[in-house]
Simulated scan of single mutants.
Amino acid sequence: MGLGDKISNKAQEAAGKAKEKVGEATDNERLQAEGAQDQAEAKAKQAGEHLKDAAKDVTGQ
């Protein structure tokens, strides 16, 4: 996984957490859901990147 991808994914995850917390503080369910979705997307991207890295390690590329 490239450093840029790691930073981007972590930034998306952090933004999702912040959005979710703001939604909780303001009792805004839509914002909470969007924040949770952003976090889930970031984690899925991270998992995909880890799989790519593992495949490269196995194939030696």
Rank of each mutant, 00 (worst) to 15 (best):
Q12E: 13
D27Y: 10
D5C: 05
Q37V: 03
A44N: 01
M1K: 07
Q46R: 12
T59D: 11
G60F: 01
G35L: 08
N9K: 03
A14P: 03
A14E: 06
G23E: 04
V22I: 13
E34V: 05
M1Q: 10
Q39F: 07
E34K: 05
A33I: 03
V58G: 05
T59A: 14
K52L: 07
E29M: 11
E34M: 06
Q12L: 14
A36Q: 12
L51Q: 10
V22W: 05
D38Y: 12
L3W: 04
G4E: 15
E49M: 09
L3E: 11
A15K: 11
A36P: 01
A18P: 02
M1D: 07
A44Q: 10
A40I: 02
V58M: 12
A11Q: 15
A55Y: 10
A36I: 03
E20F: 08
E49K: 07
T59I: 10
A42C: 11
T26F: 00
K52E: 12
E13P: 01
Q37N: 11
D5N: 14
L31D: 08
A11S: 12
G35D: 00
A44G: 02
D27K: 15
K10Q: 14
L3V: 07
E29H: 06
I7C: 02
L3I: 05
D27I: 09
G4N: 15
K21V: 00
L51A: 12
